[in-house]
Computed example of a mutant assay.
Amino acid sequence: MKISFKNAVALSLIPQIIIVKWLGNHTEFVEKYYSTGFYPFISRMFRILFGWIPFSVGDLVYFALIILALAYFYRNRKFIWKHKLIFVRNVLMILSVAYFTFHFMWGMNYYREPLADKLVLTETRDYQELLDFTHQLIQKTNETQLKITNDSSLAVNIPYSQDVIFDKTILGYEDIKTIHPFLAYNTPSAKTSLFSTGLTYMGYAGYLNPFTNEAQVNSLLPNFRFPVVVGHEIGHQLGYSAENETNFIGYLVTANNKDAYFQYAAYAYALGYCLNDIRSANKEDFNQLLSTLNPGVKNNFQEMSNFWNSYENPMEPVFKSIFNTFLKANNQTEGIRSYNAVVALLVAYHKQHPL
């Protein structure tokens, strides 16, 4: 029996999933032939294509697709109701094309070799090591805050525009590649999102558009957090999909920047994750460590808390749940909690490279 083209495309979703999951068990193959083979070429091509455009092309593509989908549902609502199987087939066909395009353009990076292997790091969950590292981070954070403000009670106000922060981050990548050549970043394509307000209500600081390879950053973020998020999203562009790894890359490139404001942003960013882990393990240790922070550092943390709290809404947990499911489906078994897994990378890295 002859199968129509649309049916064939829809049915191809099943073997695609099987192939992707099979390749996911062969990380060396993915690393060699996709992540460091094919992907850098296609990523560079799309950054050349869209990087020079000052606004987000990917955001406009998403917007256009949403409008087209809504228009399709409205115009064809009677047909859809009468021909439900055809509608399901059409939806599966679209999902099949999207699934293939996503993994072809970027998504196979979820199955590459772990960054810890590339850096020859041994990750541990030793609580004492975490405590020792957090003490060091507090010292560096306090010292840098005082160096910038000359007053331990003042919050740090990063005085740069977002465009300047983008430029300084790119310079930071130029510096970090001398230490870690695999972080070389050419042909930039990093921008603020046109839908930053929506991202904020959803609880997101940024994202990489896998179809246009544009690094998108939430333009409403306080400057205190902006440098690390730019570094994080560029890390995704470089082919690192795991959120703990791009959190680490964002920290690393920002902490190694020559600019003291960037260093402060990085130390405070890492410190927040470490304190969060300690709070979950031992409230007494957490309170003791918190008491050693300069008041100005606490003010910066409060600034971030106030920012996110001001956008709290009933739909945010829904969006977070969807993203959590997406991450779990793409080889990040801890879902959203994988962001916090950056702590193990930080502790392991700074055992070899002391602060």
Results as ranks from 00 to 15, higher is better:
198 G>R: 06
90 N>H: 09
230 V>P: 06
120 V>L: 10
114 P>A: 05
265 A>C: 05
177 K>V: 07
192 T>A: 13
154 L>S: 12
97 V>Y: 03
266 A>Y: 10
140 K>A: 12
204 Y>E: 13
235 G>W: 01
73 F>G: 10
345 L>K: 09
312 E>L: 11
77 R>F: 12
320 K>F: 03
30 V>H: 13
245 E>Q: 15
124 T>Y: 03
276 N>T: 09
161 S>N: 12
295 P>I: 07
330 N>I: 00
23 L>N: 07
203 G>W: 09
230 V>W: 04
297 V>L: 08
24 G>E: 13
278 I>W: 05
180 H>D: 13
322 I>R: 11
196 S>Q: 13
114 P>T: 02
213 N>R: 04
9 V>T: 12
218 N>F: 02
14 I>C: 10
275 L>S: 10
213 N>V: 01
152 S>C: 01
68 L>K: 13
291 S>T: 06
168 K>R: 15
46 F>C: 02
159 P>N: 07
122 T>H: 15
66 I>C: 14
137 L>I: 02
11 L>C: 05
35 S>I: 06
108 M>S: 05
193 S>V: 01
211 F>Y: 15
253 V>W: 09
26 H>N: 15
6 K>W: 06
186 N>E: 15
16 Q>D: 05
250 G>D: 01
310 S>F: 02
33 Y>S: 00
212 T>F: 02
176 I>E: 11
288 Q>D: 14
290 L>C: 05
349 Y>E: 05
80 I>E: 10
35 S>R: 01
314 P>H: 05
252 L>Y: 11
71 A>F: 08
36 T>Q: 15
174 E>L: 01
41 F>P: 00
283 K>R: 14
158 I>A: 13
314 P>E: 03
312 E>S: 12
8 A>D: 05
193 S>E: 09
72 Y>F: 15
141 T>N: 08
173 Y>I: 00
70 L>K: 09
114 P>W: 13
336 I>C: 02
331 N>T: 02
27 T>F: 00
354 P>I: 05
56 S>M: 06
59 D>R: 03
338 S>K: 08
350 H>M: 03
158 I>R: 09
318 V>P: 00
297 V>K: 08
147 K>E: 09
136 Q>C: 04
207 Y>G: 00
37 G>P: 09
63 F>S: 13
1 M>H: 09
142 N>L: 08
90 N>K: 14
149 T>I: 06
154 L>P: 03
36 T>H: 14
205 A>T: 09
21 K>W: 07
349 Y>I: 04
189 S>M: 03
250 G>Y: 06
80 I>P: 07
222 P>T: 11
266 A>Q: 10
124 T>F: 10
103 H>S: 05
290 L>D: 14
165 I>N: 08
223 N>S: 15
42 I>G: 07
18 I>C: 09
18 I>S: 11
229 V>T: 15
66 I>E: 10
44 R>H: 07
348 A>Q: 07
262 F>M: 08
346 L>E: 11
125 R>F: 02
204 Y>T: 06
341 A>T: 07
56 S>H: 01
12 S>N: 13
38 F>W: 13
120 V>D: 15
347 V>P: 12
348 A>F: 03
23 L>Y: 08
232 H>D: 00
73 F>A: 11
98 A>P: 00
141 T>C: 12
83 H>D: 04
278 I>Y: 04
76 N>A: 01
246 T>E: 03
212 T>E: 07
340 N>S: 14
217 V>P: 04
257 N>H: 14
335 G>L: 07
